[in-house]
């Protein structure tokens, strides 16, 4: 087994999240996520995977009743106590369904993070950022002649890659992905998987997935969650060949979930 970098970039300490008082969707999760690697989060439906990664970039603030306790640190900064806008720029997010902005062109979609915050850029800076972001998701050659077309005219897989480019354009420290390929066909899924493996040099990736072979193919570390708890967290090879918890084994062999 190759040696992997073990510099923690994100650390979760005793993280608890509840939508209704007394019922924890994420229960006392502590873990270090390592820089430059892909970490997959697995577990049966409703076990709190989405809740966990959405807590990291504070998307939960959309629900007023939610309660969070514990600690999240990204590069030494306490994410729960700084401006959410800043958190979300450090921790980019890609969702299950591709969601490019329908009223914006491909070009503007890539730059949306800057436009919405109101950061002014020169024409040259913009062109360069759009090109480099689209190249890093392998979309440049497919769209370079139609950058002014609406983002919503692309195929599902292309839209999802556009959304990844949009997140990458902000140069985040970490990219959170919630089942980013579950709405895509196998070919588009494959493309994105290859892409993520290439991208991990630039950005640490945490990916929620229901697809165990996907986790096995691309991730370096895997988490297994069950009923809000982090049951097991280990090197992906170890998790898949020699899980230490019985529940992990049962899940991976398809006994439930």
């Amino acid at each position: 087994m190759e040696n992997l970098n073990k510099t923690p970039i994100l650390s979760l300490k005793k993280l608890c999240v509840s939508y209704t008082p007394g019922k924890f969707a994420v229960n006392n999760v502590s873990a270090d996520i390592y820089e430059g690697l892909i970490t997959s989060v697995m577990g049966p439906s409703g076990c709190g995977k989405s809740t966990l990664i959405r807590a990291i970039n504070r998307m939960h603030e959309l629900y007023p009743d939610i309660r969070i306790s514990g600690n999240i640190e990204l590069k030494g900064r306490d994410l729960l106590h700084i401006n959410p806008s800043e958190v979300r720029r450090m921790a980019g997010m890609v969702f299950q369904r591709p969601n490019p902005f329908p009223t914006m062109s491909i070009y503007d979609n890539v730059l949306a993070g800057y436009k919405l915050i109101g950061i002014k850029q020169s024409r040259h800076e913009k062109d360069e950022l759009v090109e480099s972001s689209l190249k890093s998701v392998g979309l440049w050659d497919e769209v370079k002649d139609g950058l002014s077309k609406r983002g919503s005219f692309l195929s599902g897989g292309q839209q999802q890659r556009l959304c990844i480019a949009r997140a990458l354009a902000l140069k985040p420290d970490i990219l959170l992905m919630d089942e980013p390929t579950s709405a895509l066909d196998p070919i588009a899924t494959n493309l994105i998987e290859e892409l993520l493996v290439k991208l991990k040099k630039e950005v640490t990736i945490v990916i929620v997935t229901h697809n165990m072979t996907q986790a096995a193919r691309i991730s370096d570390y895997s988490m297994f969650m069950y009923l809000g708890e982090l049951v097991e967290y280990d090197r992906t090879e170890i998790m898949f060949t020699n899980p230490s918890d019985k529940r992990t084994e049962e899940y991976l062999t398809g006994k439930f979930g």
């Binding site: 800043e86 949306a112 915050i117």
Partner: peptide
């Protein structure tokens, strides 16, 4: 759509 916007930190 709203989530996409907020997720970009806007």
């Amino acid at each position: 759509l709203k989530e996409a916007g907020l997720a970009l930190g806007s």
